[in-house]
Computed example of a mutant assay.
Amino acid sequence: MAAAPALPLLLGVLAALLCGSDAAESTYSRLPEALRSGVDLALEKLHSHAGIQHHFVFLRSVSQSDVQPGFNVAYIYHHFYLKATTCPRGTTDTTGCQLRNDRPLIDCAVCYKTLRDQIEPEPRPYVHCVHKTALTQEMKGARVQHCNQLGYNSGAPTLLASMGNERLSLLTHSLMAVTLLLSLACAGALLSSVRTQGPPGQQSGVDLALEQLGSHAGVHHHFRFLKSLAKSDIESGFGVRYLFHHFYLKPTTCAKGTADSSPQNCPFRNDRPLMDCAVCYKTEDDVMATDPRPYVHCIQKPRLTMEMKAARTMHCKKMSYNSGAPTLLAVSS
């Protein structure tokens, strides 16, 4: 009779063993293609080392950031964990490989340029992977410095700022890049409407901005998402994420409140200025949390001032996201 209470625990252990690899594969498959390319590069380099005896798989993201200057080009930074499996390195059929918990995680950081979601050979992609337990502050600093020195998009800001904290520096850059990205944008470019692509929960920030914009009496037209300028997120575990997103909204020919607001029924109009929006907020299981209160700032693009940009930065910096964790944005020097 004493064995009966142990049955649920035994079933739980068996389920973890049977489903561990599938869960990791599911997490990997949910990554955008451009991020999967960086993970694949890290796995390729890791498995090429003679000292690696086991097959590794992607476990989860720690932090990520990308800048999209247009023309299908993106500059990406991704910090993530790889986990060992029960299969030896070089296993062809990895469907039966289960995650093993008696080996340390591999901590990886990559930064690179992509064109149409494919990694470009120039500048040379940067990959640094080490056992999580062996990662030092000096190594973190070296990662930041290396990505800082990469000559991405000649003359453009680097993916990481020269600061001691890796994640803080990464997220600081996202807003610092805005001014340059605006100047690089081609004023006459023909841009089609696209749905935001990125971390889960990012669309909810766009939806919130659209909702608040539509509630203003002075707004008479229906707006739709146009494109992202910069975005960042931190995954702190247990389904919690901290997101920053800077993007454009564009007016359509339809009046505010139009029921059928599809692109076919409501095409973009080019005789009205774009709406420049910045949002930062917390999500739990990809659902926006109400505490801390989400921050939304939208204004017509020609009216956006440096003071407003600084105010955005200051507001997101002061948000006490994930008590004790770095804030999404730091005040630039």
Results as ranks from 00 to 15, higher is better:
Met288Glu: 05
Arg303Ser: 07
Val296Leu: 04
Asp291Gln: 12
Lys309Asp: 01
Asp271Arg: 03
Arg293Gln: 08
Lys318Gln: 14
Val287Asn: 14
Arg312Ser: 01
Gln300Gly: 06
His297Pro: 00
Thr283Glu: 12
Leu274Ser: 00
Asp285Leu: 10
Val287Ile: 11
Met314His: 10
Lys301Glu: 15
Tyr281Ser: 04
Ala278Ile: 12
Ala311Glu: 13
Phe268Tyr: 12
Met306Gly: 02
Leu304Phe: 10
His315Gly: 00
Cys280Gly: 05
His315Asp: 02
Thr290Met: 05
Asp276Arg: 04
Cys298Phe: 03
Asp286His: 09
Leu274Glu: 07
Ser320Pro: 04
Met288Val: 11
Arg269Ile: 14
Arg293Asp: 09
Met288Phe: 11
Tyr321Gly: 09
Asn270Lys: 11
Met306Trp: 01
Asn322Tyr: 10
Arg269Tyr: 10
Ala278Glu: 12
Cys280Asn: 05
Met314Glu: 12
Cys277Gln: 05
Lys282Ala: 13
Met288Arg: 11
Glu284Tyr: 15
Lys301Arg: 15
Arg293Asn: 03
Ala278Asp: 10
Thr283Tyr: 13
Asp286Glu: 15
Thr290Phe: 05
Cys298Met: 01
Asp285Trp: 14
Gln300Arg: 06
Glu284Phe: 15
Glu307Asp: 14
Leu304Gln: 04
Thr283Ile: 09
Arg272Phe: 08
Ala311Gln: 13
Phe268Gly: 06
Tyr295Phe: 15
Leu274Met: 06
Pro294Ile: 01
Val296Lys: 03
Cys277Trp: 01
Asp285Gln: 14
Met288Gln: 07
Met308Phe: 00
Met308His: 13
Pro273Thr: 02
Leu274Pro: 02
Lys317Leu: 08
Asp276Ala: 09
